[in-house]
Simulated scan of single mutants.
Amino acid sequence: MSILISDELLQSAQMTEAELRQEIAVLLFQQERLTLGQASRLAEMNQLRFQRLLADRHIPLHYDLAELREDVESLKASGWR
C-alpha cells in the first residue's frame, strides 16, 4: 500500500517526506502498533539510529522476546552473521 502526500501539505507542515515518515513511525511505535524493527523500517533508519531518535524524545523502548526473535530472523534473512 502506498500513501500519497502532496508537496503542498508537506510545505504547510514545514516537513520533508523523511521527517513525516519518522513522525509516523515514532507515533506508531509509541502506541505499540509497530515493533522497533517495523518502525525503524518505516522511518527508513537503521534500528540504532531510530533508537537514538526515541531516546532524544525520551520515549522508552518496549522490546520483548517476540521482537527480539523478529529482529534475529530479519538479520538472518539479510545474510548477517
Rank of each mutant, 00 (worst) to 15 (best):
M1Q: 11
M1R: 14
I3N: 10
I3C: 11
I3S: 06
I3A: 03
I3K: 09
I5A: 06
I5N: 01
S6I: 06
S6T: 14
S6V: 12
S6Y: 01
D7V: 13
E8H: 09
E8M: 10
L10N: 05
Q11T: 15
Q11Y: 12
S12H: 12
A13D: 03
A13N: 14
Q14Y: 02
M15P: 02
T16S: 09
T16H: 07
T16L: 07
E17M: 13
E17Y: 08
E17P: 13
E17C: 14
E17D: 09
E17R: 11
E19P: 03
E19L: 00
L20G: 13
L20F: 05
R21H: 05
Q22K: 08
E23F: 02
A25R: 06
A25I: 08
A25N: 07
V26W: 05
V26F: 03
V26G: 00
L28V: 11
L28R: 13
L28A: 02
F29A: 02
F29G: 01
F29Q: 00
Q30I: 09
Q30E: 09
E32K: 06
R33M: 12
R33N: 12
L36Y: 00
L36P: 03
L36V: 08
L36C: 00
G37N: 11
G37E: 03
Q38E: 13
Q38C: 11
A39Y: 09
A39C: 02
S40I: 04
S40P: 01
S40H: 00
L42P: 00
L42E: 07
A43M: 00
E44A: 08
M45K: 09
M45D: 10
M45L: 15
M45N: 03
N46A: 01
Q47K: 06
L48H: 13
L48D: 15
L48S: 03
R49N: 11
R49Y: 12
F50A: 00
F50W: 03
F50G: 01
F50Q: 01
F50Y: 08
Q51E: 12
Q51V: 09
R52Y: 12
R52C: 06
L53T: 14
L54M: 12
D56P: 03
I59C: 08
I59E: 05
P60D: 10
H62A: 00
H62C: 01
H62M: 13
Y63M: 11
Y63P: 06
D64Y: 13
D64V: 00
D64E: 02
A66T: 13
R69V: 15
E70T: 00
E70G: 01
D71V: 04
D71W: 06
D71K: 06
D71L: 11
V72G: 10
V72N: 08
E73A: 04
E73K: 09
S74L: 10
S74K: 03
S74T: 08
L75D: 07
K76D: 14
K76Q: 14
K76Y: 04
K76W: 11
K76G: 14
A77G: 02
A77I: 06
S78K: 05
S78F: 04
S78P: 01
G79P: 03
G79F: 12
G79Y: 05
G79E: 01
G79T: 03
W80M: 14
R81Q: 02
R81C: 14
